[in-house]
Design a protein around this nucleic acid. Structure first.
Lengths: 189, 189, 189, 189
DNA sequence: GATGAATGAGGGTTCATTCAT
DNA sequence: TATGAATGAACCCTCATTCAT
């Protein structure tokens, strides 16, 4: 399968983009990582930026997909919230590299591609906002600015890529539990 | 003021780094922005990276300074928490450009300078953690992992640079109020 | 021959280094000389300095190789001395450009590469010293400080690159003969 | 005296040119060494190259002056030869820095200034040649190509700057004695 | 005499991309 | 499909020199 090699390239790119950053990663680096010559890469990719775009899209798409599945469920909003946080943090911690590239390196994209990612990201925010709005309507959550709340939750969760290390002692589910507690019940007594 | 020009350069750099990103900003761009020849810049700066480091340090230092002042106060922990969030969001929204450079572009720094920033950032986290620990000890906050909570709050607050626009209708104090509510009381009814 | 181009580059570099000096020779000059773009050179070389180092090593290696061959011979020490001088002056005059680069431009190398060349040069001095020591032991040469004598001979021979011109009327063998006479028998009656 | 400062500058330049080489020495370096600003230097010198030229001329002039004095003496040619070698090696070893700049860095000069130095150097060779020719005419030296012999002697003596270190154990007079023996009597038994 | 800001050309090097083979 | 030579623009930075103050 031809796409096998492409997959290999994407994987190598993710790893490198995460480790060195997009700009510091040269096409040569990627070629080396997959055992190809620089020029040969261009049979599979159409450019370095497209590679980054692909990676970012792959990542954000997964988030959106899972979030939609959770929203479609029948649980209470509180339950959904917990599941959503587990999902989000699970994805982030399970593939910190991919998440890092999405969250940290997307800026390197040009205007157009960046907007593509932005739109997918906006959708994700919308889904979260909807979850919270539902909770409010159902009387499970306090009334309030749902979008702002969603931004707070997402900010907290996204930030995790900056400090989470797989080698650490805390599972992503544990983090999710703690974060869910904080957001649902607050920290004040 | 002899440092007038230097200040001008820093300001231009911040603006450009925020708009285009550190890597996409050339020294030429900065020179153009201040009406100097490329080479002339080097009377004021010792390199592009040092410029970024300076900017980042300037930013994080301000955060730490203010946080220490808040910690030293006599208010209740809840009050301090609110003030801290006001302060943090105030700084971020007041100079989104500067904050963006700190939060988004610091990765562009080499190992050594990045560590310098990291240390200052770690200190900031420590201060926040201390605030929360104090609250727990005083019985104002629920017992829990203070550091994790601090990370949640900081994540939420830092994320603001990604969506906040001065031209928007919401003041930073309003955001702080909402966020403080979320974190103190939770969103669940 | 895949290295054809590399050889071409080295040759051009030698010529330019000799004519203008290492520092006054720009990478652009070399590129022009071989009909390549500046950047294209870097497929063959890893930097301007490495080019110089390569040239210098190529030169000094040849000297050492030939000197070892002479030392291994069975002739008398006087014969060896003559042959060594013929060899040394032959190399210098046959490729004055290369010798000039070795003798005059090696200083342009950084500390590390310069030491590499220095070591090879030291070896060469050692070989000459050994030749003279042998002569003393065999009773062919007067007792004396062999190393100092070697330095005198080498100094005299190396200096030749400063005044020898191929277009001149004197063959290198003639120079060698004269120099051998001077050193073996002295100029005093 | 205004020339005091100039002297200081020349001295600093010599030291720096010797240590780092002409090209690697910046005008800033020299300014730093004398505690002046870069721009202020230009009240004393007309350019970096002129500084080098001045240094080189100062050096070669001294050689010529002393050689002429020796030639004018009444000693035997052998005596003169010894004295000339003592003088030459004395100058070189006494101020290795100055000699190094003359012998190693003169290449950095442009065509015109280099020719100026070359002429002075040619004169020096002529003086040596005359000394040897006299010796031949007086029957003290074997007949032969006086210029070539002079080149051999000068080459050997000049080379000394490459290995002589003041901290070493050998005085320049000792070197001169050894070299004189080598050249006068040869090394063959 | 001294300053130091400013110049402006040039330095070596990197790199994403192309394309003939 | 794979190569690797070649491009050519852009990069950051250095530096000798000038000149208004």
């Amino acid at each position: 399968m031809a796409s096998n090699k492409y997959e290999e390239i994407v994987l190598a790119a993710v790893k490198l983009f995460e480790k060195k950053g997009y700009h510091a990663t040269s096409v040569q680096d990627i070629a080396d990582a997959v055992g190809l010559q620089k020029g040969s890469l261009y049979h599979y990719i159409s450019g370095k930026e497209d590679l980054l775009l692909g990676v970012a899209q792959r990542a954000i798409t997964e988030f959106n997909l899972r979030m939609e599945r959770i929203l479609a469920g029948e649980e209470s909003s509180q339950e959904k919230m917990k599941k959503a946080m587990e999902m989000h943090l699970g994805l982030i911690t399970h593939d910190v590299q991919l998440s890092t590239v999405l969250l940290r390196e997307s800026v390197a994209l040009g205007e157009k591609p960046q907007q593509v990612v932005q739109e997918a990201t906006d959708l994700y925010l919308t889904l979260w906002t909807r979850l919270i709005e539902e909770g409010i309507q159902r009387g499970e959550f306090r009334p309030g600015n749902a979008r702002m709340t969603a931004l707070a939750v997402l900010g907290a969760c996204n930030w995790v890529y900056r400090w989470y290390q797989e080698s650490g002692t805390m599972s992503s589910d544990k983090v999710a539990e703690i974060y869910a507690n904080v957001f649902l019940d607050g920290i004040a007594k």
